[in-house]
Simulated assay, not measured.
Amino acid sequence: MLNIDKMHHIAVICSDYSKSKDFYCHTLGFSLMAEYYRAERGSWKADLALNGQYMIELFSFPSPPERVSRPEACGLRHLAFSVQDLELAITQLNKDGVECEDIRIDPYTGKRFTFFSDPDGLPLELYEQSL
């Protein structure tokens, strides 16, 4: 068995680097740890942290192909973020122009959650840990 300690990072390729960087940093609250322009690729790379922990590599590439994400396509389904107050998080996202789906209840844990999308349509989830 492989001895994995924890998840290191998630890589996200975006179509509009400035728009996605603003979304992840200002709307979702990630901090920019490092940022690099890779001239040989015409590509930006940003290292984003949440509460001081490196979590997301945000990449741009010239004309990336669209990825099928719904309905229930094979591969990465969504990224989920834990929150303490789901309604407050939804209100904050709505203020930033981000629409969320109706709140659902996880039938196995009884916890509440909702889905929304990043600027490229990547499905994201907020999962409430309190209550």
Rank of each mutant, 00 (worst) to 15 (best):
N3Q: 11
I4A: 13
D5F: 09
M7Y: 10
H9Q: 12
V12D: 12
I13K: 10
S15I: 00
D16I: 00
D16A: 11
Y17G: 08
S20G: 08
K21C: 10
Y24N: 10
Y24Q: 04
C25T: 15
C25H: 13
H26E: 14
H26P: 01
L28P: 05
G29F: 05
G29C: 06
G29T: 11
G29K: 04
F30N: 02
S31F: 06
E40D: 09
E40T: 15
E40P: 00
G42L: 05
W44V: 01
A46W: 08
L48A: 11
A49D: 11
Q53M: 12
I56Y: 07
I56A: 12
L58S: 10
F59E: 04
F61M: 12
F61W: 05
P62W: 02
P65A: 09
P65I: 10
S69H: 08
C74A: 13
G75V: 03
R77I: 01
F81P: 04
S82K: 11
V83L: 04
V83W: 08
V83Y: 08
Q84M: 05
L86S: 02
L88S: 14
I90D: 06
T91K: 15
T91I: 03
K95P: 01
D96K: 13
V98D: 07
E101C: 02
I103A: 03
I105L: 11
I105M: 00
D106K: 06
D106L: 03
D106Y: 05
P107Y: 09
R112Q: 13
T114L: 14
F115G: 07
F116P: 04
P119F: 04
L122Y: 13
L122I: 12
P123N: 03
E125G: 10
Y127P: 03
E128M: 13
